[in-house]
Design a protein around this nucleic acid. Structure first.
Length: 540
RNA sequence: GGGCUCGUGGCUUAGCUUGGAUAUAGCGCCGGGCUUCUAACCCGGAUGUCGAGGGUUCGAAUCCCUCCGGGCCCGCCA
């Protein structure tokens, strides 16, 4: 029963003092520790009950009043427990996959990281707006538009998948018969000039693909507040203004008719092309305008980007800094590859998010049917749905974004590991106890938290108290996996309590306090799951 | 070739920013636990040169250097 102050002021202080003291006076760490210890004065009624020396360490123990306060606060704050008081508007951009096919398992790593961070930041107090940036001016969309005129659009398929089929066919054809390439160039040029007929074709193609993409996102509890089209910055003149502005910089240069900037002095060897020799803009130029536009509307900008954007995003940041504009905070996640190599929509080599969800849901259904054979069909389907979505989201978010992963079907459909279902199950257990208590008319509004003295009870309360800290760290460092780990540890603590401490069969005074603790667990498990975008079921 | 990044038991992984107590947890493996609130659970055990080597330090998984291995990037593409 001890609280580690590793991350807290006290231990940092004692450690620092100990180190400084050692260097200055050549004393042993243990002696320093003793001196500090001798001078510790704990005020009565504080959240620290006592301090104990252990060699070079000083351990502080939490007090009863801290534990009691935690329980009472959770019951008082309910679904708001864990909310922090940060302020400000955040625009968080995530997913932003090109609308040339369905989301694949690499894209949803972006989506899940982005959506979880949006939820974490919201809980941390920020006003969060999520955006999907639609790259409608790239060549790949022109290929889709050209493809729609030359290949069959399979109406029997989900729309984004049908678009992908057209896109793949078009690419194959463009490689085989090079003479069609100018047709695509012509489409691109027409779109850039704003030809109404071409505009409509692009809008139809993109809307079609986006309809399917949004459907997939909705399935995993993800929604975007705003969809921003890249072309609006070209049409609105922002991109031209940006190019004119950059032209005036000392570091700007014209090489073979193209406008470039030198970024050597900021550690980037590659010079950045801002404007093509034909006067048109590039992706990065439009991205500069997009960020300038976003910056005006918020206090913090956060972009979730794949590892292939590392160079381009550092160029973007450097450029914004040079222009005196606000820079985004960028969360880079590494690639999800297939055992046979990296994925490519263009080549048709990918596993779609839909396919993954279908397979995982199928596997989940089999597990449910085996574990709960007496339940009706509707129940089994519902459970399979939220368990599979939870499992997919949890499996993605538990891994640090900077870790590259290789997709594995066997692991993807494995429910035996301690993932989301484990946490959901713990929540359902807690709900079950509360439900039974209500059915039996057992009240627990009045209770004495001082009777919660069992080792498992104290461990559980301490774990409950850590939720705010988890939100704080996850939101500050933009590390959503912190929360995934916390949720699992909380479920772990609850299950140990559940196993060792009887609730409904306990003596009335213990029963009331323990029911309150179960209620606390239920609340915080639900809050943690909600922040992870995972359903907290009342039964499963 | 240059830049960035990752390397922790058989597998997956936490910790690394800010050096400190027996290196976190899961899967798998071995053994135990359902007449008791949902066993998708709980308990115990085995398994580690923290990629390698050097350096800094009283002390290194953590900081610095070199090397090895994997990934990503290096286009008037996005």
């Amino acid at each position: 029963m001890y609280l580690k102050f590793k991350d807290e002021v006290l231990s940092v202080l004692s450690n620092a003092v100990a180190k400084a003291g050692f260097e200055a006076e050549d004393m042993a760490l243990n002696e320093i520790s003793e001196i500090i210890y001798a001078n510790i004065k704990i005020p009565p009624d504080s959240f620290i009950e006592k301090a104990v020396t252990a060699g070079p360490y000083i351990n502080f123990f939490v007090s009863r009043s801290f534990l009691n306060e935690t329980v009472l606060r959770v019951l008082l704050e309910r679904e708001n427990f864990g909310n922090l008081d940060n302020r400000g508007k955040v625009i968080l951009e995530h997913t932003s996959a090109n609308p040339d096919g369905p989301l694949h398992i690499g894209h949803i790593r972006n989506s899940v990281i982005g959506d979880t961070l949006a939820r974490v930041l919201t809980r941390a107090g920020y006003d969060v707006e999520t955006q999907y940036y639609i790259n409608d001016m790239g060549r790949q969309i022109a290929v889709v538009v050209w493809g729609l005129e030359n290949f069959k659009f399979d109406v029997s398929k989900k729309k984004d998948h049908a678009i992908a089929e057209v896109y793949i066919n078009a690419n194959k054809n463009l490689v085989d018969e090079k003479e069609h390439s100018p047709e695509v160039d012509a489409i691109m040029k027409k779109y850039e000039t704003g030809d109404p007929e071409t505009n409509k074709k692009f809008k139809d193609a993109i809307d079609t693909a986006m309809e399917g993409i949004k459907e997939s996102l909705r399935r995993i509890n993800i929604h975007h507040d705003k969809f921003t089209w890249e072309s609006q910055f070209v049409r609105g003149g922002d991109v031209n203004k940006m190019m004119e502005r950059i032209k005036k910089l000392d570091r700007a240069m014209i090489k073979d008719g193209a406008l470039m900037v030198d970024l050597n002095d900021v550690g980037i060897q590659k010079s950045l092309v801002i404007q093509r020799s034909d006067g048109t803009s590039l992706y990065t130029t439009r991205d500069l305008s997009y960020h300038e536009w976003k910056a005006k509307q918020c206090d913090r900008m956060i972009d979730i980007l794949g590892a292939d954007h590392k160079l381009i995003s550092s160029q973007l940041k450097a450029m914004l800094r040079i222009l005196g504009l606000k820079e985004p905070e960028i969360v880079i996640f590494e690639f999800v590859s297939l055992p046979e190599g990296s994925m490519s929509t263009r080549r048709g080599v990918f596993i779609s998010a839909d396919e993954l969800l279908d397979e995982v849901e199928k596997a989940a259904y089999e597990v449910v049917a085996k574990k709960l054979p007496e339940k009706d069909e509707d129940f089994k389907r519902k459970v399979a749905a939220f368990v599979s979505i939870g499992a997919v989201r949890y499996d993605i978010i538990r891994i640090s974004p900077e870790k590259a992963t290789t997709f594995n079907w066997k692991e993807a459909v494995d429910f035996e590991k301690q993932g989301a279902p484990f946490i959901q199950y713990s929540h359902a257990r807690a709900c079950s106890i509360i439900r039974k208590a209500q059915e039996d008319g057992i009240a627990f509004e009045v209770f004495d938290p001082n009777v919660l003295l069992e080792e498992q009870e104290i461990a559980l309360i301490k774990k409950l108290s850590g939720f705010e800290n988890a939100i704080d760290i996850a939101s500050r460092d933009l590390k959503p996996n912190i929360l995934a780990i916390y949720a699992r540890e909380l479920a772990d603590a609850f299950n140990q309590f559940y196993r060792y401490v009887p609730v409904l069969d306990a003596e009335p005074e213990f029963r009331a306090a323990r029911l309150a603790l179960v209620d606390c667990s239920r609340i915080v498990l639900a809050n943690a799951l909600d922040t992870l975008g995972i359903t907290a079921p009342e039964s499963m």
